[in-house]
Design a protein around this nucleic acid. Structure first.
Length: 263
DNA sequence: GGCTTATGCGCAG
DNA sequence: TGCGCCTAAGCCA
């Protein structure tokens, strides 16, 4: 389930399972063979996530960049020789720790310079916010510089890194702003509130592993159907105002929102 | 068992 | 704007 919170969870797992140790890297499926050979046996210095991408930084400077896309998935095992099933693009092992990667959009070895280019393009990640408000200000100025609808801007990883279709819909519902409002018609206060809310929701996501967006359920164990206000609830009455939740396509992605609450 | 759908995004045109 | 990627879950029969 790859919005930003998932990738941060994986990066945290990599940091504790593999960092500081030599890591064997193979490609049972074969498509990552030549890249794996460049790094296999090197010590992993650090695993970090920025938005939906994970970066594994190895001794010597090589970096593995992984983007799960819509299909990609990780599977962790307790044994280095766990049986390989299906198409495993890359397997990382250190001692008994073993992680299999399937179906990623991107899995490649890049240089520090190439990584820097990626970092520079990405917008601020609410999960990497530093003390102070610099990331929020970067987000706000990027939104206000655009005439595009806010519903599109929240999906743009150059504007804010880590938000996907679920959090996009839920953040806008919680802010009570229509997805069609142009970025340059949003006030600084409104955008600051959306940023702060994204920090809060993504942290809940990292903690629980689920995209729970209703306060009441933060500490519970809600089913998928209960977790959200508008996502995948088209045609149902809005729990806040009773209006029928709408669905439409925005730039080919399904957008859910409440016309009663979101102005 | 088969079909649809998905939390994403790069690319061609 | 539409396609391709290439995997798994959810749903139906």
């Amino acid at each position: 389930m790859p919005e930003g919170h998932t990738v941060h969870r994986i990066a945290n797992a990599f940091q504790s399972d593999f960092a500081g140790r030599p890591v064997t890297v193979t490609s049972p499926q074969g498509r990552f063979n030549s890249d794996a050979a460049l790094i296999s046996g090197l010590v992993l210095k650090r695993a970090r996530a920025i938005g939906k991408q994970m970066f594994l930084e190895f001794d010597g400077g090589a970096i593995v960049r992984i983007h799960l896309g819509i299909y990609g998935k990780w599977q962790f095992h307790d044994s280095a020789d766990a049986e390989v099933t299906g198409q495993v693009r890359a397997r990382f092992t250190a001692g008994k720790n073993c992680a299999d990667l399937r179906g990623p959009t991107i899995c490649e070895v890049i240089t520090k310079t190439e990584a820097k280019t990626v970092f520079n393009r990405l917008g601020p990640d609410p999960l990497n916010a530093n003390p102070g408000n610099r990331e929020a200000q970067r987000f706000i100025s990027r939104v206000q510089a655009s005439k595009s609808p806010l519903g599109l801007l929240l999906m743009n990883q150059d504007v804010i890194a880590g938000i996907g279709n679920v959090y996009r819909a839920e953040l806008l519902f919680r802010a009570q702003i229509t997805p069609h409002r142009p970025g340059n018609q949003c006030t600084t206060e409104e955008l600051q509130a959306i940023w702060d809310d994204s920090v809060k929701l993504l942290r809940i996501g990292v903690k629980t592993g689920f995209m729970i967006t209703k306060e009441k359920l933060f500490r519970k164990n809600p089913t998928k159907a209960e977790r959200n206000w508008v996502y995948k609830r088209e045609g149902s009455p809005c729990e806040r105002c009773g209006a029928s939740v709408q669905i439409e396509l925005m730039a080919t992605r399904k957008l859910y929102w409440c016309p009663g609450c979101q102005k």
